[in-house]
Structures are given as C-alpha cells and as structure tokens.
Amino acid sequence: MEGNRTYSESELIRRIQAGESGLFQELARRHSESLLRCAFTLCRDQQFSEDLAQEALLEGWRFIGRFDGRCQFSTWLYGILRHRFLKSLRRKSLQEPHSWLLDADPLMTAETIDPVHQLQLNEDASRLRQAVALLPDEHRQVIELRFFAEASLEDIAAVLDVPLGTVKSRLHNGLEKLRQQKITVNLFSNTRESGVKS
C-alpha cells in the first residue's frame, strides 16, 4: 500500500476494481478472521473452515468486479462463503463433527489476573457453551454467529440465507431460552443484545 496509507473499505474496493489487484490482500486481511469464525460456525470443523474461508476469499478476489455496493462487502463475502459451504456439503456429504463449543473457549483470554475470578469465568463459560450447544440448530447458529463470530444481523441473514426479520426472531428466541436456563448474556465477550431490535 503506497506510503503505508490506510484506505477506507469503499476506496480500497474501488481501487481494486480499477485494477490495483495487489490491494486485495489488505481487504482480505480485514475480513479473514470474522470469515473464518463464520465458516467454523457453519461446518464445525477447523480444517474445513479454513479451506472454506480461503475459497471464499479467492472467489471474492476473482469476482470483486461484480460487487456493486448495494450491501456491505462483508455481507457479500459471507454470501459467497455460504454458497461454498453448501457446494462442499453436496460434494462431500459431510457429517457434522462435534460442537466446537464443547472443545474450545473463545470467551477466555490470558489477561485475567485473579485466579479465583478466572475459575469462575471458566465455569460460567463452560455452562454457556453447553447451553448454547443444546439449543435448536436455528437458534444456536444465530447466537454463535452473532456473539462468537461477531457477525452483524445483516451478515447472519446472508450466511444463513434467511430474511433479516427471521434472524432477529431467532436471536430473540435463542436468548430467551438461555435466560430460562439462568444463563446470562453478559457472559458473552461482546454482547450486543440491542441488535435484536436493530
């Protein structure tokens, strides 16, 4: 990037579409982490999710000329991801691996100082993971995408190919089911419950 200049996303896309294809690396860097988390939520397999994210980015680079700005670039990219996921399912007849929620703890960081507090957080996060894993798929996917993958409601609608209103309804119902189990949403690292109304 010339002179280490930081471009806005819209300018970056415009320059790539104008022929500066080398800038796509920066665009991919900005979206790769959230794209990988969304892929993981869909397929629940680490290697498969990495392959899906790479394929989506590659396809995004090849067809960026088709991006017309009528939606967020992330929404467009997640739409590609979902298409690749469904295509891979048909090709591989993939069996769903066990939930990553039961194996990994995306909520914890190494920065917690108090060991007693750390233990309580670990116990709370474990209860949360188990509770989310037991939700119906339609609620589990929305909650994982919203809070663990930190996807916007619009992006979730693109990933799952459902209307925005359906995403809001599923998120509301999923959070309500967690409340009924005495699971508090403040256990999430980036709770945005207000998004249900947005």
Rank of each mutant, 00 (worst) to 15 (best):
Q72S: 09
C71G: 01
Q46C: 03
V142Y: 07
I16D: 13
Q130H: 09
S34L: 01
R70H: 12
L42Q: 10
Q54C: 06
R66H: 13
L178R: 01
A131V: 06
E26A: 10
I143P: 06
E150P: 12
L89P: 03
N122Q: 08
S189Y: 07
R15D: 08
G165W: 01
R5C: 09
E96K: 09
L187E: 11
S10N: 03
F67M: 14
S49C: 14
D155S: 12
M1L: 08
V132D: 11
C43E: 00
S93I: 06
R90V: 00
F63W: 01
L153K: 03
K197S: 15
L171G: 11
C38K: 15
L134V: 00
R140I: 09
G165D: 12
E123C: 14
R15S: 03
S99G: 05
A39P: 04
F67S: 08
L102T: 02
N190Y: 10
D51G: 04
S8N: 11
N186K: 11
S169N: 01
D137G: 03
D51C: 04
E2M: 14
Q141L: 12
K87E: 09
Y78K: 15
L107H: 05
A133E: 15
N173W: 03
Q47W: 04
R146E: 03
P136T: 13
G3H: 09
L42N: 04
S21Q: 07
K92W: 05
M108I: 11
S198R: 14
W100F: 07
L27S: 06
R62S: 12
L42T: 04
S99Q: 13
Q118L: 13
E144G: 01
G69S: 01
T6S: 05
E96H: 13
D45V: 15
A28M: 07
L23E: 10
P97M: 05
S21T: 13
R192S: 09
T6Y: 03
G165E: 12
D124G: 02
S152Y: 01
R140P: 06
Y7V: 05
R127G: 10
G65S: 08
R66I: 04
S93E: 14
E55I: 00
R179F: 06
T184E: 15
L89M: 12
F147A: 00
I156N: 08
W76K: 01
R91I: 04
A18E: 12
A39V: 04
A104G: 04
I80Q: 07
T112A: 04
R5V: 07
G65H: 14
R70N: 02
S194G: 10
E193Q: 11
S74P: 06
L57R: 12
E150Q: 13
S74V: 13
D161C: 01
G60M: 07
R37K: 05
V185G: 10
K168G: 01
A110H: 01
G60A: 09
Q46N: 10
K182V: 14
R37P: 11
D114C: 11
P163R: 13
I143H: 07
V159T: 12
T184K: 10
P97D: 06
E33V: 02
R15I: 02
S126E: 15
S152H: 04
A56L: 08
D45E: 15
I183M: 14
H172E: 13
N4S: 11
C71R: 05
L27K: 07
T109A: 11
A149G: 07
P97E: 11
I64P: 04
S21D: 10
L58P: 00
E144P: 00
R140V: 02
W61C: 08
D155C: 06
L175P: 09
